[in-house]
Design a protein around this nucleic acid. Structure first.
Lengths: 265, 265
DNA sequence: ATAATGTCAAGAGCAGTGCTCCCGTCTGTT
DNA sequence: AACAGACGGGAGCACTGCTCTTGACATTAT
């Protein structure tokens, strides 16, 4: 399994151990408090030895970022996969609650991903790949709703410049998988989702919102209206009517997506 | 003017000098690179002397945070005051562009305010006051639009829990200055505004959006629809057409909001 | 005017950090 | 078996936040 030479095997193993210990430290002390020497101490090795595996502290952080992106992406994918694929609103809410749940469980990791960029000031190229996983889930959702979802434009259609500005993500998706208005609205909800989670985690909701669980669920539901997820009565109406949106959706910090999957059954 | 004793005067003066130099360092190296010793060096004083004015590095950072909040709040207020008060959409967009413009001009300060919380992990009490200024501008906007603005609910009204969750901000506003649906929608746009700015500044739009100017303007306009700012043609149409939204407000880079006024005309 | 009081700046020092260099060892390859 | 390269450890540099002590100064009360 592991690549040939025993040297490379043990090297990979030690690399793993370092990132593992570093992950623990990160979750405990935060990115600012992550010390290469402390990690080395925990591993019983000299600090200089760690540099054989990570040329700098920032490289270690980059590895942790990649890992965290993977963890978050996995959480989002898992949550979404547990909802019936026809239940578009359920899938959207499930992803929202998964992201929020992951963020609350791993606040320091979340801050590392979506907070102030710590290293130099430009996310290394290695991190852009793993970062797209949760976005990919959402665009998949939009693609499935293509034609079915009606985006409210409030009487003001997108300007040409706005449509053009979507070029990068459009080519990233490969062609016209998602219509411009829908893609644009999806971007807005994507931004708002992480804006909400960041505001909660970074303390900007203190003194503003009481029951963050209820607020978040309602906000994400309302945002679903921006991409037409709430407006359409066909697939959503029945399910949403049977169980008022978010009644127990994310209320207890536990089982956020339990209800999201419920309308499927 | 300055309080009596000459001692206190010179003390206040030195305190100012320290925060001034620290602000420069912050804008240059970021919060993580802010060194008390370096600041002291620039001032030609021993590092230990600085501790007479700020008991710890975090206290200096807190002072800078307060100052930055003030600067941002001022920018938002100035921008909004330059738009006719009847032009609600114009005021909203003006604030949006002011916030974004300020953030782009002071990326490190913005990261300090809305990025990962650096000190301990709980924003000191001193910072919550100045932090509310831009929010206050927005709530004032909502209050002025009260009764006039129609919030789209997409057929799904707010749950009771969601309405209840707004209690803190409601009492903060003092009574029922703003109706629940409107206040809730306003919160959503507020969160989305900072989510968008954060995503841009923290690099999460790289490879997603090309012309961020156009994208941001269109997104904020569309978000205005969430609070009913775009739906109503009555007051907006004329005012927005006569005076393009925030032409001189907060758009230095390339007049991104020229497009916002286009559809109105 | 003098003495007491409190404030201030400076220096030395502690513990910790990222990172580099050098040296001995140990391993995989030829 | 011999050699080149990977590896771990130790010492050391420059830097950080922070504390303690010492001496100079200004303010205030007597």
């Amino acid at each position: 399994m592991a690549t040939g030479t025993a040297r490379e095997r043990v090297r990979a193993e030690i690399t793993r151990e370092i990132t593992d210990v570093a992950t623990v430290h990160l979750g405990r002390d935060g990115a600012a408090g992550l010390s290469l020497r402390a990690v080395a101490r925990d591993l019983g090795m000299a600090s200089s030895a760690v540099y054989r595996y990570f040329p700098s502290r920032d490289d270690l952080l980059t590895a942790l970022i990649v890992e965290a992106y993977g963890s978050l992406g996995q959480a989002a994918e898992d949550a979404e996969s547990q909802v019936a694929r026809t239940d578009l609103l359920g899938r959207w809410l499930s992803v929202c609650h998964a992201v929020r749940g992951w963020a609350r469980e791993h606040p320091h990791e979340y801050a590392l991903l979506y907070g102030s960029p710590v290293p130099g000031y430009a996310a290394p190229q290695d991190t852009i790949g793993p970062a797209t996983r949760v976005a990919a889930v959402l665009t998949g959702l939009l693609a499935d709703g293509q034609g079915q979802l009606e985006v409210p434009t409030f009487g003001v259609p997108l300007t040409e410049a706005a449509v053009r500005s979507l070029a990068p993500v459009r080519t990233g998706l490969g062609g016209d998988a998602v219509q411009a208005e829908l893609l644009f609205a999806g971007l807005t909800t994507w931004v708002a989702l992480f804006g909400a989670v960041s505001f909660e985690l970074f303390g900007h909701l203190v003194g503003v919102v009481d029951d963050v669980d209820a607020w978040f669920d309602a906000t994400m539901t309302r945002l679903g209206g921006l991409v037409g997820l709430v407006g359409l009565v066909g697939s959503v109406g029945s399910a949403a009517a049977a169980e008022p949106v978010g009644t127990g959706a994310g209320t207890p910090s536990s089982s956020p997506n339990a209800t999201a999957s419920a309308p499927a059954g």
